[in-house]
């Protein structure tokens, strides 16, 4: 199943890679780009998960992790889509213009369950920090997840479950 073909309201169990970032990391990416510097990682074809994990318990892959409020990330969305991001994951409604951006870039906005961070962390099989470790819980992580529950909130045609 191609992500671009998913319809608003469909639910999937995703297996694969996610890139975790939130407010501070995206602000930093924008600064890097403004200085015309090279990002130390590629976002081409990636799925971005708006989140910041808790500290991990001994012996676990990652700490509790769950979606943060997506609407705060809206000012950075077009920047990510221009960098090749094909989908974002978070929680809650977004600004109206996100529907237009979804159409323009054939991108999908998923939601995943909020307030279930310990259960979600059990679906993460690999985790590593790939950039900005100085941001602590707001560093950029690369995750491998299995059977990660995602619901299409805005599809690539700009259709939203909130309408």
């Amino acid at each position: 199943m191609k992500i671009v073909e998913l319809k608003a309201g469909e639910m999937i169990q995703y297996c694969g890679e996610l890139i975790v970032m939130r407010d501070a990391a995206q602000k930093k990416i924008r600064e890097v780009l403004e200085f015309k510097d090279q990002l130390p990682f590629s976002l081409e074809g990636k799925i971005v998960f708006y989140a910041g994990p808790a500290r991990k318990a001994a012996g676990s892959v990652i700490g509790a992790i769950g979606p943060t409020t997506s609407i705060r990330m809206d000012p950075f969305l077009e920047m990510l889509l221009k960098l090749g991001v094909k989908a974002t994951i978070g929680k809650g409604k977004r600004n109206e213009y996100v529907k237009e951006l979804s159409k323009k870039y054939s991108a999908v906005y998923f939601i995943t369950s909020s307030g279930t961070a310990t259960a979600l962390s059990k679906k993460v099989v690999e985790a590593e920090i790939i950039a900005f470790p100085e941001l602590g819980p707001e560093a950029i992580y690369r995750l491998e997840v299995k059977e990660f529950p995602l619901l299409v909130a805005i599809d690539s045609k700009g259709k939203s479950i909130y309408d």
Binding site: A57, A64, G66, T68, S114, T116, A117, A119
Partner: peptide, 15 residues
């Protein structure tokens, strides 16, 4: 999530 958090002493939410 409620079950695992209680059983393993892990936070209900990352926040």
């Amino acid at each position: 999530n409620m079950k695992i958090a209680q059983r393993e002493g892990l936070p209900l939410c990352q926040d």
